[in-house]
Design a protein around this nucleic acid. Structure first.
Length: 179
DNA sequence: TAGGCCATCTGGTCCT
DNA sequence: AGGACCAGATGGCCTA
């Protein structure tokens, strides 16, 4: 995994280089590689020109070359689709983060923070709703009230088990303090 | 400078 | 068959 450390990263080729190797090896039909050019432009945001030494440790990952003619084009198209998919995923993360109230930090929430806060926010809302419905139904007779109270008891037990509600409130507080 | 987080590439697998 | 999804790998940026 990433635990190999930064130093080891320096010894391996970048993906851009892999692309270039790939294009050379696959003898692409067209010289302009509109797909790759597009990709490289997009990459320009974060991905920079590769460094020097090419201990091709990453080359072991590419176990096989596409054997069909135009396979490189398919790969580049696939890369583009994957980028778009990840962009959609990131947009969804952002929307989710914006849906969590009282999080007005200037610092952008990380993905794990977004997921954790969202989970705990949902749990806290559920607790509130269940608490309200339980209170409303306290005076009512019948099955529904017993279901509601059982549900509420179950949820209370869950909260006690993992402390999600208090976690959420603590996180809200800490994020506010941290900003 | 180390570590966290991220974007991207890539090959494998699943699904339609 | 081809696209979607997933996880691993890797390099860049940022911050403490």
């Amino acid at each position: 995994m990433k635990s190999t450390g930064k130093a080891s990263k320096r010894n391996s080729k970048t993906s851009v280089e892999n692309d270039q190797d790939f294009l050379v090896e696959m003898e692409p039909a067209s010289s302009d590689h509109e797909g790759s050019e597009k990709s490289l432009n997009l990459r320009g945001k974060r991905r920079k020109k590769s460094n020097d030494n090419g201990m091709a440790s990453s080359s072991t990952r590419r176990k096989q070359h596409p054997n069909a003619k135009g396979g490189n084009v398919r790969r580049l198209e696939s890369n583009e689709r994957e980028r778009q998919r990840m962009h959609k995923l990131n947009n969804a993360f952002q929307a989710l983060g914006e849906a969590i109230p009282h999080i007005k930090t200037e610092k952008k929430l990380s993905k794990i923070e977004t997921l954790t806060l969202a989970k705990n926010y949902i749990k806290s809302l559920t607790a509130i709703i269940l608490g309200m419905s339980s209170g409303c139904l306290q005076h009512a007779e019948g099955v529904e009230s017993s279901h509601a109270s059982k549900l509420f008891e179950h949820y209370q037990q869950q909260l006690e088990d993992d402390g999600s509600l208090s976690d959420y409130l603590t996180q809200i507080h800490s994020f506010r303090e941290g900003s």
